[in-house]
């Protein structure tokens, strides 16, 4: 290889310190794409409906919630048709939940790879988050259909908010997923706890109910859940309503903290993965 001489490497005990080698990540960018693509292609191999599952998941949840919570329980929906209301909440939530549960299980699921060959370990949870993102993009297309069906016109300019908001969800999911995947290597309890954790987290997030339903004195606590601010903004922006900047900023701050924690936890255990997994 022409760049052979550039591949100088010194391997020594890290003593627990490790830093994110962005240069190396860049060199391995093709692997990230291939791993992501592998996850997507394997997930829908030997399934009848294939990629349709990506859109059925939030769509069917929307139908169920609309019938039970919208119709029967009569939950308020801030003056929007309940199906549109819940779909807008389910969109980022489904992405978040899928990305976290997939990346949380990813390291253990790829144990054979980790113990046999070197590559930046972080690519594994990253690929999980990315592969869930593809599902998410597909279900975004369905959103257009749902809104048209219920004659809700989107605000084209404010809809651009969805781009940074989705990115924020991705960063949060990466942080939480990294942390959980590293913990899962050491304590397999994690994989049993994650589904339950995600269920609790969903009820703490205004996915199927409006944030206006939360009593005033719990609002501060409520805002500490980053998915709360994000979901509210998600719903407000495409409908042309004002985004609550205050709670969104709080969300951003919490996302940064959780991401840093997840990365720290991941890197702390990274060097022993192969010995423990």
């Amino acid at each position: 290889m022409s760049q052979g001489a550039d591949h100088h490497l010194l391997i020594r005990p890290s003593g627990g310190r490790s830093r994110l080698d962005l240069q190396e990540l860049w060199r391995y960018r093709d692997l990230l794409l291939v791993l992501t693509w592998r996850e997507i292609s394997i997930r829908y191999k030997q399934t009848l409906l294939g990629g349709a599952w990506a859109i059925l998941q939030p769509l069917l949840s929307m139908v169920v919630f609309s019938i039970f919570l919208g119709r029967l329980a009569g939950l308020p929906s801030d003056g929007i048709p309940y199906p549109v209301f819940s779909y807008l909440g389910l969109l980022p939530w489904t992405y978040f939940a899928n990305a976290v549960s997939r990346s949380g299980a990813s390291l253990v699921g790829n144990a054979n790879l980790i113990s046999k060959v070197y590559f930046p370990r972080i690519l594994i949870p990253l690929a999980s988050v990315l592969s869930a993102f593809v599902d998410f993009l597909l279900s975004c297309v369905v959103l257009v259909g749902v809104m048209a069906w219920y004659h809700v016109a989107p605000d084209p300019l404010r809809s651009l908010w969805l781009v940074p908001l989705s990115l924020l969800v991705a960063i949060l999911a990466t942080g939480v997923g990294m942390g959980l995947s590293a913990l899962n290597v050491q304590y397999r309890d994690v994989q049993h706890a994650v589904p339950f954790l995600m269920q609790l987290w969903m009820y703490a997030t205004p996915v199927v109910y409006p944030a206006s339903l939360v009593p005033e004195r719990y609002r501060t606590l409520f805002a500490l859940n980053p998915m709360a601010g994000i979901t509210e903004a998600y719903r407000a922006a495409p409908l042309g309503r004002a985004v609550d900047m205050h709670s969104l900023l709080v969300s951003c701050a919490v996302v940064v903290v959780l991401f840093a924690l997840g990365l720290w936890r991941f890197q702390r255990t990274e060097r022993v993965f192969a010995d423990v997994v």
Binding site: G4, H8, L10, I11, R12, P13, S115, Y118, A274
Partner: peptide, 22 residues
């Protein structure tokens, strides 16, 4: 092949390593 870390000592490489461990 950088799958596991050494406990002591060091190793210096001037090139790409491809390992076929399994």
């Amino acid at each position: 092949s950088r799958i596991t870390e050494p406990t002591e000592g060091e190793l210096e490489l001037w090139g790409r390593v491809a390992s076929l461990l399994e």
